[in-house]
Amino acid sequence: MYPPEFDYYRPGDVSEAIDLLSGGGRVLSGGQSLLTELKARQTDPGRLIDVGRLESLSGIDAGSEGVRIGATTTYAECVDSAGVREAIPVFAAAAEHVGDPQVRNRGTVGGNLAQADPEGDLPPAALAADATVHVAGPDGERTIPADDLFEGENRTALESEELVTELVLPAHDAGGYARRIHPASGYAMVSAAVVFDVESEAVAGARVAAGGAVERPIRLAGVEKTIEGTPVADLAGNGFPTEIGNALDRAGDEVDDELPYGDRHASASHRRELLPAYVERAIENAIDGTGSAEGGESR
């Protein structure tokens, strides 16, 4: 496991990082995906631009309207942040599932979204949470809504010389995440993230996203529409109202237009079949207020 030769740069600020990126190379942040690729010699970028120590890119700023999370903030910092857990429980729950403690202490949220792994935990959570990704590039700064960020397997709307600087996530009342762990890699073979507010004791502004079964995280408009306006109490008991159960059963159909994603451990069609169960669990976790974690893991 010896990487190919590369030049290493550690810029002092974001503009220097952008300048360096214009000369080619890849951004190194937590390195939890990139170093593995390098050591396996699956990539040979020649240059690494290390932004991992740029203090301006790190940190969590939680307010009542939402949370700003710096791109190089680690998963562990998100999990440990009371502000993140309270304002965007779906994101904290998803971050808690990434890798193992070592990975969570090194890997960064910006790197995760830019990597856009089809089996990543954060992309569906960011999509459900309606995150806005702030990006810096040679032409200045711009923002990309999560709805426009993910284009395919390891493909995003980011340009190669652009850098994620932070995410902004609006606060929501309830959020839940559930995932089926990949038996070999530990990634999310299938995942579902659910976010909504509670108005007059009913679901409002529901956003539901699924990952793993297709090449990019995708919103499930049919499920969203069905749970919108449902009294929270109807989701809390044993068994959902028939209408919602039916909508869940159609969850797989909602990803029909997407490129299927599967492997020999779990075919794409099997993953699609699992979607209803995991969306259901994500809703349950949102209602429980657990956000997630243990409740969402495959039992």
Binding site: I181, P183, A184, S185, G186, R264, H265, E297
Partner: peptide, 27 residues
């Protein structure tokens, strides 16, 4: 979990721990 799998051309697909599922403690 575990199974070593070759494709039709005889390439070992389960050639890493990301592909060959040794059970983790939680499993």
């Amino acid at each position: 979990y575990e199974e070593a799998v070759y494709d039709d051309e005889g390439r070992l697909l389960s050639d890493s721990m990301a592909e060959y599922p040794v059970p983790r403690a939680e499993q």
